[in-house]
């Protein structure tokens, strides 16, 4: 158990350091931008609607005279106190914008994560176990097809077919951008969420299917499965005894690694469906030069991705006896 704790601790520290590096990288990138945040926003968004205090606060943040390192340190210090700054476009604190948008996005992402993970895992195993047969070719074909089509185009097709042609779902465009989440009823929200969530799930499946299939084939070609065959174990027994057990570890990694992809996919899908989530907010922030929001979302999304990796590492440590007993780390 002690070895497992050390392993977890190491991974946790690594995660924190990586998060720090991400924030530095993101900060450097937005600082490099030729678009001066304050100038751009003062000319773009109505200057008059910003109060003098807000402008002062912004200048303090993005003070042109300060060195980047000082600005970064100030930003980190505030961030650690829970102050992520004020969004220039939404005119609210970044933290509250993120909270609001994230709760919308989480609905999509969690749904897509579970559905694509579950279905992808199942189809991948089915495909790998039946390698070369028709069912394998069908599943593989489906996965390659959806992996090759751009996510946002699939979303467009869905919008076209289900909303425009069949009229089953509302057309996202009719929802005003930046609508207050609280004023929307739950059934309304669900109705708007279904199509994006399904699109996101479908695009997420392909990757999980293809990787699970590959791992399953690796397992079936292993020497221990050959030996199991030589010992008279039948296909189903081999799957139950060895297949599932050995596919589980890569599946954990895969499932948690897919968080990053689902996050990326949600940016595109939300944009197509005008879904008021984090993805749409970050696009708006990027296009409008809303640096505090852009930075905040980047750090939060990286934190989610790293937390996913960290959980995967812990599960790995618990499941894999070689790590649990400290044979390798």
């Amino acid at each position: 158990m002690n070895k497992l704790m050390v392993y977890m601790f190491k991974n946790f520290i690594r995660m924190l350091l990586l998060l720090l590096f991400v924030s530095i990288t993101a900060f450097i990138l937005v600082s490099l931008s030729p678009i001066d945040p304050l100038q751009a926003n003062i000319s773009q968004t109505a200057l008059g609607s910003l109060s003098q205090e807000q402008i002062d606060k912004l200048e303090m943040y993005w003070g042109v005279n300060e060195a980047p390192i000082e600005r970064y340190l100030a930003w980190v210090r505030a961030f650690l106190h829970g102050d992520m700054g004020t969004s220039l476009l939404y005119r609210q604190s970044v933290a509250s914008v993120i909270m609001q948008k994230l709760s919308n996005s989480l609905m999509l992402m969690v749904f897509a994560w579970i559905i694509s993970g579950g279905i992808g895992f199942f189809l991948g195993i089915l495909s790998g176990m039946n390698r070369g047969k028709i069912i394998d070719k069908l599943i593989k074909g489906y996965a390659l097809l959806t992996a090759s089509a751009p996510t946002f185009w699939l979303a467009l097709l869905f919008l076209l077919v289900f909303s425009v042609w069949l009229g089953l779902f509302p057309i996202g465009l009719s929802v005003p951008i930046g609508m207050d989440a609280a004023s929307v009823s739950l059934s309304d929200r669900l109705q708007h969420a279904i199509l994006p969530a399904v699109t996101l799930s479908i695009t997420g499946i392909s990757n999980i299917v293809l990787h699970t299939r590959e791992k399953m084939i690796d397992v079936l070609e292993s020497e221990y499965v050959l030996f199991a065959v030589a010992r008279g174990e039948k296909r189903w027994e081999i799957f139950r005894h060895h297949g599932l057990r050995n596919i589980l570890l890569p599946a954990i990694t895969l499932q948690f690694a897919s968080i990053s992809e689902i996050f990326g996919g949600s940016i595109l899908v939300e944009q197509v469906f005008s879904y008021p989530g984090l993805g749409q907010a970050v696009v708006t922030a990027g296009l409008g030069g809303d640096i505090p929001l852009l930075l905040g979302i980047t750090v939060i999304s990286a934190a989610i991705v790293f937390a996913g990796n960290f959980i995967a590492d812990i599960l790995y440590g618990i499941v894999d006896p070689r790590i649990r007993k400290g044979a390798r780390s």
Binding site: L18, L19, V22, T25, A26, L29, V30, S33, I35, S260, E261, F263, G264, G265, I267, L268, V282, V283, G286, G289, L294, I297, T298, S301, A302, V305, F306, N309
Partner: peptide, 13 residues
């Protein structure tokens, strides 16, 4: 660690 699309947006920015 940063979702690809997001990093692409940052770099483009």
């Amino acid at each position: 660690g940063i979702p690809h699309i997001l990093l692409l947006m940052l770099i483009s920015f």
